[in-house]
């Protein structure tokens, strides 16, 4: 069975900063996800599991229409959607954190029974936005955050592995592969550039060190976000592709 696209996963790093002062990067945090689909319009949220046994707490955090960060922790009610009414109407989703790994897949969606914002697979505990609460400053500001792309195929190696930034609508991101597979490098804070990382812009393929990702191996992907002096606020996405060949 060759490596399927679904075998290539994206995860958080151990240290995902929410301020400019905290350690950033580290090893892979394979319980943390980085992909979700933001709310298309201001709305409130609800969450449910596909397993009735899931009653752990889930904390949802977003920004309300006024731009303030709002949060609510609520116990899940199994397969019945729990509406995060205290959280209220949010303009953007920031993160969702489970108190413990769920038995089922947790779905976070617009309420009631609206579009899915994020899913947290069994064994995973969080999903989040990058460059959380960052802001432009009087001068040009560059920040760095780390994620991982992992080959979760049981046996096969992803050969000719490469990373590529395939979309950057805000034209604010470059990416760079970590200097080694399965590395755990950190930076003092997200304003500090990681060592030995070469950042490339959209459409530039960058080979994974060693040329391949063995089964279960992951490559760190540093994202560099540059905001010009006094740049306007953005709420956007960037798309990272891990490609390779499989037998």
């Amino acid at each position: 069975m060759p490596i399927a696209a679904s075998d290539l996963k994206a995860y958080q790093a151990a240290n995902m900063p929410e301020a400019d002062t905290t350690t950033t990067g580290g090893a892979i945090a394979a319980t943390g996800l980085v992909e979700f689909t933001d709310v298309a319009a201001n709305d409130d949220l609800e969450a449910l599991s596909d397993n009735a046994a899931d009653t752990m707490n889930l904390t949802l955090t977003g920004r309300n229409a006024a731009g303030a960060i709002v949060s609510e922790t609520k116990a899940l009610t199994g397969t019945t959607a729990a509406i995060f009414s205290t959280l209220g109407i949010i303009e953007r989703f920031l993160k969702g954190v489970l108190a413990s790994a769920a038995a089922g897949t947790i779905t976070i969606r617009r309420s009631v029974a609206g579009a899915t914002v994020a899913t947290i697979a069994p064994g995973k505990t969080s999903v989040r936005r990058l460059f959380y609460d960052s802001a432009s400053e009087a001068g040009s500001t560059t920040r760095y955050e780390k994620a991982f792309m992992k080959n979760e195929h049981a046996t096969l190696t992803l050969t000719n592995a490469a990373l590529k930034l395939t979309a950057d609508p805000a034209a604010t991101i470059r990416i760079g592969a970590a200097p080694a597979v399965d590395d755990s490098a950190t930076v003092t804070n997200r304003k500090t550039a990681p060592a030995s990382v070469t950042f490339v812009d959209d459409g530039v393929s960058q080979g994974v060190p060693g040329g391949s990702l063995a089964a279960g191996a992951a490559i760190g992907v540093w994202a560099e976000m540059v905001r010009g002096a006094g740049a306007a606020a953005i709420k956007n996405t960037f798309t990272v592709e891990l490609s390779g060949t499989t037998t």
Partner: peptide, 18 residues
């Protein structure tokens, strides 16, 4: 050779206006 395979992930970001 091998069969090509690729997966893309859309990561969300934010940067407030300072």
């Amino acid at each position: 050779g091998g069969t090509p395979v690729a997966q893309s992930y859309v990561l969300n970001l934010e940067a407030l206006g300072g």
